[in-house]
Structure formats: C-alpha cells, structure tokens
C-alpha cells in the first residue's frame, strides 16, 4: 500500500499540468472510437458507459495506466480520489464521483492471487516457557 502511494505520488508529481482542467464528456466520446479487445484503444481501459466520466476526471491529468495497473476496492479508489483532491488539485467530481467509483470498483477491483503458499495466520501469540 505504502509503495503504491509512493508510486502514485511520483507519477503525479511528474505531471506538470493537466492538459485540460475538465474536458467535456462530448469531447471524450469523440476520442473513444477505436476498440481493441473490449477496451478503448486510446486509454486501454475497459469500455463502459461510465468510461467517459473517468476520461473526463482522471486521464486528462494522468496516464490511464495509473488506473489499469492498480487494483482497489471502491473504498480504496475513493481514498485515492480524496488524496488527489487534498494534494494534487483534483476538483470535486460532483455527480460523476459515484459513476467513476462504480467503474473503478467494477473493472479494477482486487484480484485473488494464486499464491503457492499464503502468509501464515496466527490466531493467538502466546509465551512458551
């Protein structure tokens, strides 16, 4: 988690300015014509009716890869938005926020990983004399 935060910070501080403060949804729709493997050819993000809001509020400022390389719960994505609002000058997403979160939580949710051994869980530590 800490590493991911550092990564996001690094990437976002590398961006000098957003291309547009807030592009219109209409403009975004014009840019999403090409489709590859069920994903928008430009952003590489999954096609969905809510993708346009993600493009309007997210990928104007940072790479869509910053989304697609990460996996968070809805609450986790909300934390990223709040963090970006507090530190990265992200604006209030208004009515689009739940739609953006719907999208992120749907397509970029945590995945169970195929670990060959899980970390040991100790129910109760005890003193052994």
């Amino acid at each position: 988690m800490k590493n991911i935060t550092v990564l996001i910070t690094a990437l976002i501080f590398g961006i000098t300015s957003c291309k547009t403060a807030q592009q219109s949804v209409e403009e975004m729709e014009e840019n999403t014509a090409a489709v590859v493997d069920g994903k928008d050819a430009i952003t590489g993000l999954f096609l969905d009716e809510n993708l346009k809001f993600v493009q309007a509020h997210c990928t104007g400022c940072h790479s869509s890869k910053l989304i697609s390389m990460n996996r968070f719960t809805r609450e986790g994505w909300k934390e990223k938005i709040v963090w970006m609002q507090q530190t990265q000058k992200l604006w209030d997403l208004g009515e689009a926020e739940p739609l953006v979160l719907d999208y992120l939580a749907k397509y970029y949710a945590p995945e169970e990983r195929s670990l060959r051994r899980q970390p040991l869980e100790v129910k109760e530590w005890y003193e052994l004399n």
């Binding site: 100790v122 003193e127 052994l128």
Partner: peptide, 14 residues
C-alpha cells in the same frame, strides 16, 4: 509441538 504462535526467549533451545 509447539502450537503455532509461540513466543520464546533467545537463550533457550526449542
């Protein structure tokens, strides 16, 4: 033996 979760001191063999 022991049960998982044992906390022991350095000076003893387990």
């Amino acid at each position: 033996y022991p049960k998982t979760g044992a906390i022991l001191s350095m000076d003893k063999k387990l």
